[in-house]
Design a protein around this nucleic acid. Sequence first.
DNA 1: CCAGTACATCAAGTGGACTTGAGGTCAAGG
DNA 2: CCTTGACCTCAAGTCCACTTGATGTACTGG
Lengths: 150, 150
Amino acid sequence: MNRDDLLAIGEVAARSGVASSALRYYETLGLITSTRTSGDRRRYRRSVLRRIAVIRAAQQVGLSLGDIAIAFVDLAPHAAPTKRDWRRMAARWKPLLERRIQDLQRVRDNLDNCIGCGCLSMQQCTLYNPHDKLAAIGPGPRRLFPPLPR
Amino acid sequence: MNRDDLLAIGEVAARSGVASSALRYYETLGLITSTRTSGDRRRYRRSVLRRIAVIRAAQQVGLSLGDIAIAFVDLAPHAAPTKRDWRRMAARWKPLLERRIQDLQRVRDNLDNCIGCGCLSMQQCTLYNPHDKLAAIGPGPRRLFPPLPR
DNA sequence: CCAGTACATCAAGTGGACTTGAGGTCAAGG
DNA sequence: CCTTGACCTCAAGTCCACTTGATGTACTGG
């Protein structure tokens, strides 16, 4: 239906699983870009799907859209990140991801312990230790990570 | 300083790393409870620290405070969860946690792939595949998991 | 006794990530 | 030509997890 290999917002929404309104919102944040038709409709390059996938992945890691935007402008002023850009971003995010995984594994291991012990021997339980990394991570789900290292 | 083995809100805040205002907020949600002194100050049992640790852990897993509250009223109407209660909660949350870890590992493995390949061979890249589990997880960080299984 | 600090309530504000609604436009099919 | 559906903008609303501010009360040290 689209001759120019460009996607309408609805198509992008369908293929990415992200609502059109969210896509417009991403655009206001500079996370994605679009061209317009004569009738002012957004047209997206196919590469936007990759970009969106990266955004979702980064959200998974715990980055805010602001953090992601920074990473994007920082690394890729153009719409389709190059191999090199992508590699840099991936390298940068990986430690965060690793740490996040480790944190969750710690929680899981504690659950295992607690399932075994009933968690009444609290002294050595890291869940119970308020001043470990978990506590330092921040005020709950909305900020799972500190801001990107400068 | 406290004879009755009860903790003032400031002490709980200091020991748990959670702000007093957040503790009061948790109380409005029924996540924690307190008794009052004659002067209307909150006094917490020591076990509240464990409860708070559990709350933070569950947030780590991606549960909302609402979800946690449900799990709590569901399992533990009393202030200090018993060994059995805690075991059940842990057992219930563990699959969520495992899944979350797996999802993140998937992302990480993809990053590894992409660091190697530059992510330009997108066909087999699961990051690029919009209809996989990642896309299904939901609208970003605020709801990393579907609501608790019934 | 008096100052200072810690705590109380309650209403309102914040930030993130969107969604919803009102009101209008554009392009295709019958 | 006219309807329908997808799209547009912009302002406002929503949900979550808290925080902040105003105003008042209680206990502690000097």
